[in-house]
Design a protein around this nucleic acid. Structure first.
Lengths: 231, 231
DNA sequence: CGATCCATTGAAGAGGGTCAACTTCTGTGG
DNA sequence: CCACAGAAGTTGACCCTCTTCAATGGATCG
């Protein structure tokens, strides 16, 4: 069952998309596929980075905890995306926790195995370098945004980013295709769940969004984009 | 004169440190060395990323402008560091401006030339990947910090980061070895020059720092570290 | 059908941004 | 060498946006 699901999902991944059948089977065989129940911690901040992961199905969040107790959600991982890989390849401890937000399926490799795969199939190395590059750009933007913008603007941007990464068209608008709490949105935008709650309530009022428990639909992407750009 | 300075500086760079003399000369010959007067814009946000740069001497700041006019300093570049390279290799426009903060000396290559060099000397590719990885981690930390911490804490962290990147031991403490304004510090920490001015004044009072016009000396690294960690 | 998780809403207070006026320093040109 | 312009920094007062604190109300699940 996994054997039939996994190769398919692997093909969806940027780094594995160009591999032929034989290569894909090779890559798959070198790793371990495993299901992750919602809430399951895949790895923890500070753990030695000794494994490289790719999500096949579901959704994972990468969360950084601060000493005082507050935490921030660095990013959400969707199917086909790698995580933990940069730390592992650099021989560094994982800089954040990885937690499954819904029941998920992942494949992981030891660093050693991943190195061999990268040597054998350079497109994997290329692909993961490119994805790291994209993340670098995205983070750079976020730093700039968090520095200068007001809360509503930051929440709008965060939501837009989620739409792009996990938006699913429905009647009525674009829905974030996994359950997300006000708290998590706040931890991404650098605010509090209270302010996020109030902000979403106001947007719902104006018809920009339609939010419910752990669920957000963007109804007016144009208005939201506006909110993100002009505070 | 440049010919004598540049190879030496190149050796200081992480990516070029392991090259032998012949290779270093090759790398050097493939690029162009040029001086940059203070204030000179090396490349601008939005320019097609068609060149890879390495700083040989001086200091460069990478600045991202927001549409409304505010801007944030993403990072400062010191001798031996590459910049513009990730964008160039990915064929993307530069995501920020690069501006010389003091008279500087750089070497740059066309992307094509850099690709050839990387193919010929894989350690250059390795080194630049490693440096991108470090930046990824640093930015991740910064996002987490900016999300949860108070202004004084963020300013302390920013200063600590500068100490690490550009600290020079002097009698009396560790000095940031290039001129930096309150404004720039504010643009890094995500605050205003007013608040930074007040904060530094308070720290000077307490003997934690000794600041003057465009000049900051950290006298009590331990206290500053404390301020950064416990708000 | 409790227990827990998630969300809402109100009220209060402060941190720090904004506005404004003034000072000091640097360097340039007459 | 002095004067002046511009850049950098200081400081006070105000006020607004968010966080913080607190209490309550619905969902969801075992």
């Amino acid at each position: 069952m996994f054997a039939s699901i996994a190769p398919h999902s692997l093909r969806g991944a940027d780094m594995f998309g160009h591999l032929d059948d034989v290569a894909a089977a090779d890559v798959l065989g070198a790793g371990t596929v495993r299901p992750l129940a919602a809430g399951r911690v895949v790895f923890s901040q500070g753990d030695p980075g000794s494994t490289c992961h790719t999500l096949l199905e579901g959704r994972i969040k990468i969360v950084q905890a601060r000493p005082e107790g507050s935490q921030s959600v660095i990013r959400f991982i969707g199917p086909g995306e790698m995580y933990g890989t940069v730390a592992a390849l650099m021989g560094k401890p994982f800089p954040a926790d990885a937690v499954a937000v819904v029941d998920s399926l992942e494949i992981y490799w030891t660093v050693a195995a991943m190195r061999q795969l990268m040597a054998r199939y350079p497109e994997i190395a290329m692909g993961s370098a490119a994805s790291a590059g994209h993340r670098l750009f995205e983070l750079q933007d976020r730093v700039g945004e968090m520095a200068g913008e007001k809360v509503e603007q930051r929440i709008a941007r965060t939501l837009l980013r989620l739409v792009q990464q996990a938006g699913r068209k429905t009647e009525g608008g674009i829905e974030i295709d996994f359950p997300i709490t006000r708290q998590e949105l706040a931890e991404m935008a650098g605010s509090t769940l209270h302010t996020v709650s109030r902000t979403l309530a106001a947007w719902d009022e104006r018809g920009v969004t339609a939010s419910a428990r752990r669920r957000i639909v963007v109804r007016r992407l144009d208005v939201l984009t506006n909110l993100a750009e002009a505070g």
